[in-house]
Design a protein around this nucleic acid. Structure first.
Lengths: 226, 226
DNA sequence: CGAATGCTTCGACTAAGATCGAAGTATGAA
DNA sequence: TTCATACTTCGATCTTAGTCGAAGCATTCG
């Protein structure tokens, strides 16, 4: 009955528990199949299928058919941003479905947040890069310094390829578990990939947890100490 | 049933049409009473009261009692950011409750987006400040240049007071009607206030429309031409 | 070609919650 | 005090949409 974009429709889309669980699972950045997402949300495949088609129609998901599988992923960075924002709001107001346990502790320690590293280690990475002068904050947004660029190249990251893309290189992302800033953007993404390539860490398929090997943990600590 | 913040609860909060209308109305930055919001949403006061208490409990609103009135406002910038993000998503997918008409045209031309200027004129302001070297973009986030600081002071804005506050001075905000960037942050806010103080423009109480006087329009065009 | 797997459609059931009338509380004015 | 205004609470009704069983396509494999 009013003017303006129909914010209610897509908010309601995210507002269903089953759909929210699916979206949260997809925030790992990985594409998942309908059956996997059904398990993730705790519903049957029929129900999941109905939900997924609605999310797709709402433009929140980008489905991709591959043989008899259908993979779903978050549609774009805008959607991911809104979801992270909602997580922040929910965390701020204590509306967390607290299930404290080892799983949750691992999540708080190191996890994937739409393709970049979050959790305690994500925060440490960000703080260390600031302290070492690799990053600098301009009005709350991080900016890569010349030293930072040299470091990135030395670390095996192709900066020219990243800057060619339209996505911003550095972006601040607010962590919902600790309410602290960590590094997003294409550089944050490239760093996590590089951690994996170096054998320092490994992403878990569906839980968003990032597991560092003992050697990887020490190498990380040596390189990114505050 | 899952770990993580309960994103569904607050998304569902925004997802009800009546509540979404209230929130959209409050995006003007002005505080409104329960009765005004009831009219805005097209429901009775009883219903509105129920909705408002839920929004309050969810931490999305900041109510303030004043005599026998109760004023509601958006709780904080985080909430406003999520709402703008949702508007962007909705607009992107064509989920607009299109009611094209003079009212909508005025909205597209100049409107308030959580206290700063948006619409065509907001975009023009941003582009002109970039072209004149008052702003510069670092990784998609605007930054005030020394010339920009001089201009702001000359324009009657107390920059030292703004920088003292914790809120970022400059921030990019994506317009949902045109998908273009305009200036948010405390500077964007101060500029709109200054436009009002100079008698260039006037905000409408409930529609978010910003009306420029003929003199104000020409003064604006003279100062902020690309 | 079956057989098996992954996903979608259909239809019926159910539960959550939005809505409003009516009555109740609080503040301000006469 | 009495009336009026602003808001909240209660209770009943009713619509919406989430859910799953069953059946139907589509794709791959033996």
């Amino acid at each position: 009955m009013k003017e303006g974009p129909d914010i209610a429709r897509i908010a309601a889309l995210i507002g269903d528990p089953a759909r929210a669980n699916m979206l949260t699972a997809l925030m790992s950045g990985k594409a998942l199949t309908a059956t996997e997402l059904a398990a993730e949300a705790g519903v049957t495949v029929q129900t999941a299928s109905s939900h997924l088609s609605k999310l797709d129609q709402g433009g929140l998901l980008a489905p991709r058919k591959q043989g008899r599988h259908k993979y779903f992923a978050i549609a774009n960075a805008d959607v991911a941003g809104v979801l992270e924002g909602l997580m922040g709001l929910a965390a701020m107001n204590g509306h967390t479905r607290t299930r404290t346990g080892p799983k949750n502790a691992a999540l708080r320690h190191a996890r994937v947040c739409y393709n970049h590293l979050a959790g305690d280690m994500g925060i440490q990475l960000y703080d260390a890069m600031l302290a070492q002068g690799l990053l600098q904050e301009f009005s709350d947004e991080p900016q890569l310094t010349p030293q930072g660029a040299a470091f990135a190249t030395d670390f095996g990251i192709d900066l020219t390829a990243l800057t060619r893309a339209k996505a911003p290189l550095c972006k601040a992302c607010l962590d919902w578990s600790a309410r602290r800033t960590h590094l997003a953007g294409s550089l944050g993404r490239a760093l996590l990939t590089q951690f994996e390539n170096l054998g320092w860490a490994q992403r878990d398929r569906s839980t968003r947890i990032v597991t560092f090997t003992p050697a990887g943990e020490t190498a990380f600590q040596a390189r990114f100490s505050v």
